[in-house]
Simulated assay, not measured.
Amino acid sequence: MTVRISHSAEVRSFFEHAAGLTHDQGNPRLKQIVLRILQDSAKLIEDLAISDDEFWTAVDYLNRLGARGEAGLLVAGLGIEHFLDLLSDARDQLTGRTGGTPRTIEGPLYVAGAPLCEGEARLDDGLDPGTPMLLQGKVLDLDGQPIAGAIVDVWHANTRGLYSYFDPSQSEYNLRRRIRTDAQGRYRARSIVPSGYGCPADGPTQQCLDQLGRHGQRPAHIHFFISAPGHRHLTTQINLSGDQYLWDDFAYATRDGLIGEVTFAEDGAHGIAGRIAELNFDFRLQQATSSDDEQRSLRPRALQDH
């Protein structure tokens, strides 16, 4: 027998009180959000006949998720972060703001304050024996004109799929730099070919994915923030061609227009001994219509800009 009480006046009034709507103190926006969460959670419990054991197992799961710092990983893995991109795309389409390099998810591993370099940078510290990579391209507007002084904020994993700061074995800001484009809008970086990564096998995100019958693997990729005065901030990433998970990314970050074609040059190219990977990628930015367009989101991130 299904019992439903969430629609009753008594329960609705109770949730309004719990969300702080019966007084003027607090944050009105947060009150509305909390009220909706309470109402929708109650309806879910009723509709799916959630047992007490299932409910408290979920509470324990959230505790473990937070303790492992994997909430950002889970929202990517469940497609919620990709949904935000799809929603932003739809809003842009409605207002005619189209064109340029596609956005895609930021992920949970950005660290603010990487060293700022002029025109070109060395991203790696030379300790990882991975294949050297020369990454270069231009930042352009929608008319194909170069944008001088744009900031290319780039970060990626090492050959073990690990990121500096979160991996204490790496040097500070390893594989993280900000590069200011030159007068022709060009940026250039020497690094190593990154590896994809998987969710920690013993973590709560992978536990959830296991229950859904899904893997937790990402293809090799390189993250970017691209910003320039008068242009919309772009959060995106290049996913490397040829990776087995290119179109099977557990985080749903691969999109048309964001595939990086990697080629290889022979020994001695660019003055580098041995085989070297080359990746050329241009970014095209939309024009900003307000100062807010130029700013990245205010989501909390590790460290702060210097």
Rank of each mutant, 00 (worst) to 15 (best):
Ile37Trp: 13
Pro132Ile: 09
Tyr245Met: 10
Leu109Trp: 15
Glu54His: 00
Gly196Ser: 11
Phe281Ile: 07
Arg232Thr: 13
Arg103Glu: 12
Leu258Gln: 08
Glu120Gly: 06
Pro200Lys: 12
Pro229Ala: 04
Asp292Thr: 05
Gly257Ser: 12
Ala67Gln: 12
Asp292His: 05
Leu234Arg: 10
Phe225Glu: 15
Gln304Lys: 11
His23Asn: 14
Leu62Trp: 00
Leu127Glu: 11
Ile5Met: 04
Phe15Val: 05
Leu35Gln: 07
Glu261Arg: 10
Thr104Arg: 02
Glu81Trp: 02
Asp267Glu: 11
Ser41His: 04
His223Cys: 07
Val154Ser: 12
Leu234Lys: 02
Arg97Gln: 13
Ile5Gln: 07
Gly260His: 10
Ile238Asn: 08
Val262Gly: 05
Tyr187Asn: 06
Met133Phe: 02
Thr2Met: 13
Asp293Trp: 07
Arg299Lys: 09
Asp40Leu: 14
Leu109Tyr: 15
Ser8Pro: 01
Asp182Glu: 03
Ile226Thr: 06
Arg296Met: 09
Tyr163Ile: 08
Thr95Gln: 10
Leu74Met: 13
Val139Pro: 02
Glu172Phe: 14
Met1Ile: 08
Arg180Asp: 01
Asp143Met: 05
Arg218Glu: 09
Asp47Asn: 11
Arg68His: 13
Ala183Trp: 00
Ala71Arg: 07
Gln145Met: 05
Ala112Ile: 01
Arg188Glu: 11
Pro219Met: 07
Ala302Trp: 05
Leu140Gly: 05
Val139Leu: 03
Asp282His: 10
Leu62Ser: 01
Gly161Ser: 04
Leu87Pro: 01
Phe14Gly: 04
Gln25Ala: 15
Gly149Gln: 06
Ala273Val: 14
Phe14Asp: 12
Ser169Asp: 10
